[in-house]
Amino acid sequence: MLFFSFFKTLVDKEIRVEFKNGVEITGTLKSIDQYLNLKLDNIKTDVDKYPHLIAVRSLFIRGSMIRYIHLNPVDVDTSLLQDAARREAIATGGDKFAGR
């Protein structure tokens, strides 16, 4: 659930999503659910290359079809995230993942 909470902190930030089919979409993150399905608003894509989403403004993206999510570094506190990831690993997997 860590990344679900993490993405909730990114709501209303601009992100770029790369699908497994290579298509990239930029937009404002509007909501997220437990499967990491996303909803983006004001989406932008390369319409000349992929006219498929012409006239679409907001988009639901299935989490399982996402390869990468590009984030603006200023939106992410990596040391906090690393810390939280460690704490979750200890809580769910015991000490063996925490490098002890």
Binding site: K20, I25, L53, A55, V56, R57, S58, L59, R62, M65
Partner: peptide, 13 residues
């Protein structure tokens, strides 16, 4: 099989 789904603007379309 769903990758993404979004409503489109009828007039713009």
């Amino acid at each position: 099989n769903v990758v993404c789904l979004g409503p489109y603007d009828e007039d713009e379309e």
